[in-house]
Amino acid sequence: MSRFEFAPMPDEQGFFGPFGGQVIPPELKLVMDEINLAYEEIRQTEEFQQELMQLFQDYVGRPSPIYHAKRLSEQLGGAQIYLKREDLNHTGAHKINHCLGEALLAKYMGKKKVIAETGAGQHGVALATACALVGIPCEIHMGQVDIEKEHPNVTKMKILGCDLVPVTQGTATLKDAVDSAFVAYMENPQDYIYAIGSVVGPHPFPKMVRDFQSIIGREARQQFQERHQQLPDVITACVGGGSNAIGLFTAFLADEPVRIVGVEPAGKGLDTDQHSATLTLGSPGELHGFKCYVLQDEAGEPLPVHSIASGLDYPGVGPQHCYLKELERVEYDTVTDQECLDAFMTLSRVEGIIPALESAHAVAWAMREARRLPRERRILVNLSGRGDKDADYVAAKLAL
């Protein structure tokens, strides 16, 4: 097997190399195996495929376009930057891609409630939207810190009819929201389904969410070839749990000339304890029912994490990202809060596109890298979401 010819990922036990799997009690393993079986059954049916693709086209608005950021590229004076516009999707981010799949799966399995966590609120809004569409009650757990920071998405979730549960324990952010949602789910796993918001958690969720998000990369690969008769030189996306990134990366993994870069939050600096750079500074461990890189203390407990972007402040990361790091197929770099803010404002004022703070991490890395590369090189950024949810927070922070 050559370096970039990959074995099927994950294997039957849900492992990507040594990462992933099901680090869960036996009774929960039975439930997860039932979800996996139902997913494998439904994904093969023509009815499901047609319903999902029709929703992607007529409800989400796919395919999302690729936009050449000409003025930004000219200002930087180097490589050309292109944006895969997931921010133009219905609900404003890539999250709707897997939320529709998970809601349809819940309907197929006859579940009575969908439970989930959310950080920045994009997953919560997308899932509340999908549940409203299929007619299933939805319960979203969100950290109190994020509720106060992401008020526009909180309002949307309430309008869409979900039951929003504030989480005040711990740091009251994403990791704690996951813990809270998991406790609620375990009250009745037979009737509830936990719709995990990224490529994390026990098998089969890293596989399922990746599969639903892989439409990003499939579209981008075809669009770029049709437009330029070649693939991009570099592709990049932000990485917290890692769903938008793996959605873009999957279609390009076997294309050896394409450089692939995931961008983690360096927060207030890698030399501080105020970051979420899991793949950069973490070590192999266990979190939320699976094996992955974790920012952890000597006892193996997750450390508090920080990012200006609520959707990236998670002490773990998707198991496939961990494996791709070890295979050296994907590079993982970091961007600070300040670089993120600078990119947020630059893209807004130079191209008229307000990005999510999460996505601005990838934009910031692309801006940094473009200056170093010749003009004929092309960088494709997955612009995973729009910044409506962050506008008031940024305006207050910068005293605009």
Results as ranks from 00 to 15, higher is better:
residue 357 L to T: 03
residue 245 A to V: 03
residue 288 H to F: 15
residue 340 C to H: 01
residue 187 E to W: 12
residue 88 L to M: 11
residue 151 H to A: 14
residue 310 S to Y: 06
residue 12 E to G: 09
residue 303 L to K: 10
residue 364 A to P: 13
residue 272 T to I: 01
residue 63 P to T: 12
residue 133 L to D: 10
residue 356 A to E: 07
residue 291 K to C: 06
residue 77 G to Y: 12
residue 138 C to I: 08
residue 245 A to D: 00
residue 95 K to M: 04
residue 284 P to C: 10
residue 353 I to D: 02
residue 22 Q to G: 03
residue 85 R to Q: 09
residue 101 G to P: 03
residue 252 F to C: 05
residue 113 K to P: 01
residue 223 Q to M: 14
residue 41 E to K: 00
residue 132 A to E: 08
residue 184 A to R: 09
residue 31 V to E: 12
residue 135 G to S: 11
residue 352 G to N: 02
residue 274 Q to E: 08
residue 372 R to E: 15
residue 106 A to P: 00
residue 169 Q to L: 14
residue 388 D to T: 04
residue 226 E to Q: 11
residue 311 G to Q: 11
residue 107 K to P: 06
residue 208 M to S: 00
residue 134 V to P: 10
residue 240 G to R: 00
residue 159 I to L: 14
residue 97 N to Q: 05
residue 255 D to V: 10
residue 384 S to P: 01
residue 315 P to T: 09
residue 204 P to A: 01
residue 158 K to S: 10
residue 162 C to E: 02
residue 294 V to R: 01
residue 31 V to P: 00
residue 186 M to Y: 11
residue 395 A to C: 10
residue 14 G to N: 03
residue 85 R to T: 02
residue 2 S to A: 15
residue 140 I to D: 03
residue 283 S to P: 05
residue 391 A to E: 08
residue 350 V to E: 05
residue 270 L to W: 00
residue 61 G to I: 05
residue 194 Y to H: 08
residue 105 L to C: 01
residue 328 E to A: 14
residue 163 D to G: 08
residue 369 E to L: 13
residue 329 R to T: 14
residue 4 F to C: 14
residue 81 I to S: 06
residue 182 F to E: 13
residue 99 C to L: 07
residue 87 D to K: 03
residue 146 D to Y: 00
residue 392 D to L: 15
residue 230 Q to A: 14
residue 338 Q to S: 09
residue 160 L to I: 00
residue 282 G to R: 01
residue 154 V to I: 06
residue 269 G to H: 06
residue 340 C to D: 09
residue 40 E to M: 11
residue 357 L to G: 04
residue 91 T to D: 13
residue 131 C to Y: 02
residue 268 K to S: 04
residue 144 Q to E: 13
residue 189 P to L: 00
residue 232 P to C: 12
residue 294 V to E: 06
residue 145 V to Y: 04
residue 241 G to L: 01
residue 292 C to H: 01
residue 286 E to C: 11
residue 185 Y to V: 04
residue 42 I to E: 00
residue 166 P to F: 02
residue 27 E to L: 11
residue 396 A to E: 15
residue 118 T to W: 07
residue 297 D to C: 07
residue 65 P to Y: 03
residue 130 A to E: 10
residue 254 A to P: 11
residue 364 A to S: 12
residue 207 K to R: 15
residue 23 V to E: 14
residue 210 R to Q: 01
residue 343 A to L: 04
residue 169 Q to H: 15
residue 116 A to Q: 03
residue 173 T to H: 05
residue 149 K to V: 04
residue 257 P to N: 11
residue 110 G to K: 07
residue 64 S to F: 05
residue 352 G to W: 06
residue 71 R to S: 14
residue 175 K to G: 11
residue 131 C to N: 09
residue 230 Q to R: 15
residue 228 H to I: 11
residue 322 C to E: 02
